[in-house]
């Protein structure tokens, strides 16, 4: 049993958005409706010349205390034994309770228009066949093949680091326990498994 997690090293993110495009291709997210499983925030802070430009990649935090899961009446949202929070597309009724509950804007609806569009675009290879609420899956299908998540594997600057937080030999463990890593909105008690190294 693993405890998968990610560290995002904000010292290096250059906002290239390769992660978004890679995830979109890998997981067939509806880019045509501007919906993505991961985003890169680009915010300016301060006044010239004391300005900072904060580039903050974000995705589902795979919270250990999981508000979306509690809110989901159908059990469509579930957690694997490796702590990955997933949606069972076939069971999801699309009530959006999870979207309201998620404090990290990690979910979006894969609507019937999107399903249709995907079918046109990907033909028999389309992977989203029914409308549902979608979110980052930590690319569980890639994990199963021993491949890094799509966003991680393409990130040019090594900003995204993925692995088993419990494995002391893993890079992600080292970064997560380095003392520099923090969680977003830790006060909410969601216990995210995505950590940030501030720039």
């Amino acid at each position: 049993m693993a405890r998968y997690g990610m560290v995002i090293d904000m010292r290096t993110c250059v906002g290239c958005q390769a992660c978004m495009v890679s995830c979109s291709a890998e997981n067939q997210t509806p880019f045509w409706s501007d919906k993505f499983r991961t985003h890169v925030e680009d915010k300016e802070r301060g006044i010239f010349p004391d300005v900072h430009r904060v580039l903050l990649p974000r995705l589902c935090m795979h919270c250990e205390n999981t508000p979306c899961l509690s809110a989901c009446p159908t059990g469509a949202t579930y957690k694997t034994e490796d702590g990955v929070v997933l949606v069972n597309n076939d069971r999801c009724i699309g009530c959006y309770a999870c979207c309201i509950a998620c404090p990290y804007d990690a979910r979006y609806p894969y609507e019937s228009d999107d399903v249709e569009h995907a079918e046109k675009l990907y033909g028999g290879l389309a992977t989203h066949k029914v409308p549902h609420v979608d979110k980052c899956s930590f690319c569980d299908h890639r994990i199963a093949q021993h491949r890094e998540p799509a966003c991680v594997s393409t990130c040019p600057t090594h900003t995204r680091i993925f692995g088993d937080l419990d494995d002391p030999a893993s890079e992600v463990h080292k970064f997560a326990t380095s003392g520099k890593a923090t969680a977003l909105n830790a006060g909410l008690g969601t216990a995210p498994k995505v950590f940030y190294i501030p720039s």
Partner: peptide, 15 residues
């Protein structure tokens, strides 16, 4: 060594 154990069966959201 790979960071993932290989025996575990993956529950995949992907078709």
């Amino acid at each position: 060594r790979p960071i993932w154990s290989s025996e575990k069966e993956a529950q995949s959201t992907q078709q």
